[in-house]
């Protein structure tokens, strides 16, 4: 389990994260959403130990990730938004790197890569950005670790590959793993991310499961406007509205509409999901 307690981080005088507290539980795929510059990548790099916490703490199974202990590194995988081209065949890269992760499965890597329609014998520095991303994604999934930190994993992927990625994520990631995905491409992942974390500058606006969101907010796809709507958006097929759910009736969460509703009514939504505030 990951415990984040009163986390703060700044780049010089630019305060990015402030007083962030949350828990990341096993078996969930967390969607980390937020506008540009709110600190999504910073949070991921703090979680994996590439940065040092300036104030507060992060504990991954009771350990500080910045210590970069081999046993914790072998339990996690961080996939950056931009990945490095390596002068090696994908299969060689995977064989050489994979030895460090105890659950790494080379045949699984080749299998996932072929599902992405990339040949394992291809040189990585001759690949397109999308193919390179697919290679790293296949490698990450083949590592079968407990903690995944994926920064914009669907960036650069073509439409079939996005769907392939969702399938592979559901199929190959161990059930007890925690996955934190930072993304702007919410439509690519909205069916798989649960819970949803929405970061704002210096604050967590929302950290709730889709069941909880659906219980408290209603996503109305009818054409009739609701007087209490927090957010309304015209869509080609009609409208999508988000308003407080008085009856607890279930509705399908539209992550993009949720994001906009939360941003338009920060205090209302925060109070709704944190009654103690």
């Amino acid at each position: 389990m990951i415990q984040i307690d009163k986390l703060a981080f700044s780049y010089g005088s630019n305060e990015v994260l402030k007083n962030i507290s949350m828990e990341i539980l096993p078996g969930n795929i967390y969607g980390l959403l937020g506008e540009n510059g709110v600190g999504k990548t910073t949070l991921l790099t703090l979680l994996c130990g590439l940065k040092k916490v300036q104030s507060g703490s992060i504990r991954v199974d009771g350990r500080d990730p910045y210590d970069r202990e081999p046993s914790l590194l072998a339990d996690q995988f961080y996939l950056a938004d931009e990945v490095a081209p390596v002068h090696a065949k994908a299969i060689c890269f995977a064989r050489e790197h994979g030895v460090f992760w105890p659950n790494f499965d080379l045949s699984l890597f080749s299998g996932i890569l072929r599902e992405f329609e990339v040949e394992p014998d291809q040189y990585m520095d001759a690949m397109s950005a999308g193919q390179l991303k697919k290679t790293y994604l296949s490698f990450a999934l083949a590592c079968r670790v407990r903690y995944y930190y994926l920064d914009e994993p669907t960036n650069g992927l073509d439409i079939p590959s996005k769907s392939q990625f969702r399938k592979a994520l559901m199929k190959y990631v161990p059930e007890e793993s925690s996955i934190v995905i930072s993304t702007h491409q919410v439509r690519d992942l909205e069916n798989i991310i649960d819970p949803i974390i929405i970061l704002d500058r210096r604050d967590v606006l929302l950290n709730a499961s889709t069941a909880d969101i659906s219980e408290k907010l209603f996503f109305d796809y009818s054409t009739e406007l609701h007087p209490d709507a927090l957010y309304v958006e015209q869509t080609p097929g009609g409208t999508v509205q988000v308003y407080p759910n008085p009856t607890g009736e279930e509705s399908k969460v539209n992550v993009e509409a949720l994001f906009n509703a939360v941003h338009a009514h920060k205090d209302v939504v925060k109070a709704m999901f944190n009654p103690n505030l």
Partner: peptide, 18 residues
């Protein structure tokens, strides 16, 4: 010192001493 390649190296499960 390169963000992409450096992160790959640092995230390899081996200790600093190794």
């Amino acid at each position: 010192t390169d963000r992409r390649k450096g992160a790959n190296y640092l995230m390899i499960p081996a200790s600093v001493t190794e």
